[in-house]
Design a protein around this nucleic acid. Structure first.
Lengths: 167, 167
DNA sequence: CCCCTAGGTTCCCTCAGGGAACTTAGCAGG
DNA sequence: CCTGCTAAGTTCCCTGAGGGAACCTAGGGG
């Protein structure tokens, strides 16, 4: 398939998707971030093929999202931990989880809750503006061309939309 | 491949990933949300195989994320628009974009900026707690079992982690 | 001596994705 | 009238990625 590599496209969604837009990668990151760090544990937890898991982990290490660390010497054993870059994928997982909770939770409610240690409450995370703190939605934002080029899939349209009408 | 359907797993990340954890789906949603609504336009914009695009659109309509609407009668032509459920995927895209901007933007900066109409500024969206408004990160949160069952991949670990030590 | 554990690698098979040609249906031009 | 264009798919064949299970390697332990 060669999966049409998207990393060269001038769109950060495409770049992120090139790595993260894989059924397993998100779940592997969830596991690692939640504390499941060993190969066999992840494999068993997800029911993923060991071959695919090895490939995904190698890719994630290569991308600097995970690090492979030796946790004992005799015999040598390695496990995986999130780097800063990896930890910052947490909001993506939260966004996915919130959406899944809202639209797919059964009558019993969501299978998992997130406790916000800072304020001591169960939280539903919200995407807000760093400046005003108000929620950011599709309806109260508009795309603008950025400095990093405005060509390629998707971005091309922004150049057409914005100058004419700010919709 | 049958891709090991994850929708039956008691984890909202897995459920969302089952739909969204696909290289193309995120990009299709980005296009539709940004105003690219016609089949040929999306196909051309993304460079996606028409066969796969038809399949993804059908799936998204089936899931209630998009609606197929007739925009002219003679000849009959249909395009695609996001439902409320679809629009709420926007935070997921924003999270992906923010992450991609931070870690993959070239020296020129991000290819696209988001203008927050509410406050009139270019925004970097942040995941915050709905209660206290403070940022939500992996380090200041802890997972708790929810009402919707605590079995299945990933969730099983929460039950082991939380009662013993809140790490 | 054999087996166990942990972290992979190798094998074969199937099926999803890529790419391009074909289909359908109305309208437009010569 | 015949040809061509547009938009939205559908069909075809081919490749290669994912699933599943067996195998490999290296250090302990009984």
């Amino acid at each position: 398939m060669t999966r049409t590599s998207l990393s060269d496209v001038a769109c950060s969604v495409a770049r992120a998707t090139d790595l993260f837009g894989d059924a397993w990668t998100a779940l592997i990151m969830r596991d690692v971030l939640v504390g499941i760090s060993r190969f066999d544990d992840i494999a068993h937890d997800l029911g993923i093929s060991r071959k695919v898991l090895a490939a995904r982990l190698a890719r994630l290490v290569e991308e600097g999202v995970l690090v492979r660390e030796r946790y004992q010497d005799q015999p040598p054993r390695e496990d995986y931990h999130a780097t800063e870059k990896g930890k910052e994928l947490y909001p993506v997982l939260l966004a996915l989880m919130s959406w899944g909770d809202k639209w797919y939770a059964g009558p019993a409610g969501p299978p998992l809750r997130v406790h916000h240690d800072t304020c001591g409450r169960t939280t539903t995370p919200v995407m807000t503006c760093e400046h005003c703190g108000e929620p950011v939605t599709i309806d109260n934002t508009s795309p603008r061309p950025g400095p990093g080029g405005a060509v390629g899939p998707g971005t091309m349209v922004i150049g057409q939309l914005v100058p004419t009408h700010s919709e």
